[in-house]
Design a binder for these strands. Sequence first.
DNA 1: AGCCAGGCTACCG
DNA 2: CGGTAGCATGGC
Length: 217
Amino acid sequence: MAIYEALLKHYGPQGWWPVAGSYHPGDYGVPKNEEEAFEIIVGAVLTQNTAWTSVERALENLRRIEALNPCKILALSWDVLKSAIRPAGFFNQKAIYLREVALLFAGLKGRTPSRKELMSVKGVGNETADSILLYAYKRPEFVIDAYTKRIATALGLAARGAGYMELKDLFESNLPRDVALYQEYHALLVEHAKRFYSGKARESSGAFVDFLRDLSY
DNA sequence: AGCCAGGCTACCG
DNA sequence: CGGTAGCATGGC
């Protein structure tokens, strides 16, 4: 919580997840309907190992052909679907993944899927499942991504070889079970990591020092 | 030019 | 099982 407070004070509310092309700082009511929830799910798949700026283009392409809903995704030809998501990379795999999640979503009829259910979908692993549950369904599942792992290991909170569930457990067992907190915390970790733990700066001692300085504010 | 990006699956030993 | 090649485009 001390780390969270320091990050929040320093960076302010981040407003993940971006929906309809923009962020929504401080608004934890997003998504406000099924369409927005599905857009988050599509974004969660498209952003796998991919910069969000590239995902935005793919989402915009899908929006333009009115394909940001499960039925349309399932109805599109492979060629059209692939060319729409092309900017987000890995389009052959991701086209398959999108159809898989569209099929699941359509079958839910508004029900919230279990974590196990999501994980059984091809293309949905730990992080994607948690992102979907936390941001699309407002469930208290802490999301661990590469940035979060870098920060946690750099701070000595976790071993270098720590697995996904281990890290998830670390955060969840030390925080109140609160959706808004989980959403904001993850967003703040990403923002901080982008500044100090990405590219050549990753795991540098300078990043660690900068973090401590932020903490002391 | 070459490394990196908000991972996952399949396959290797 | 733990570890990793392959997947593809765009930004810097």
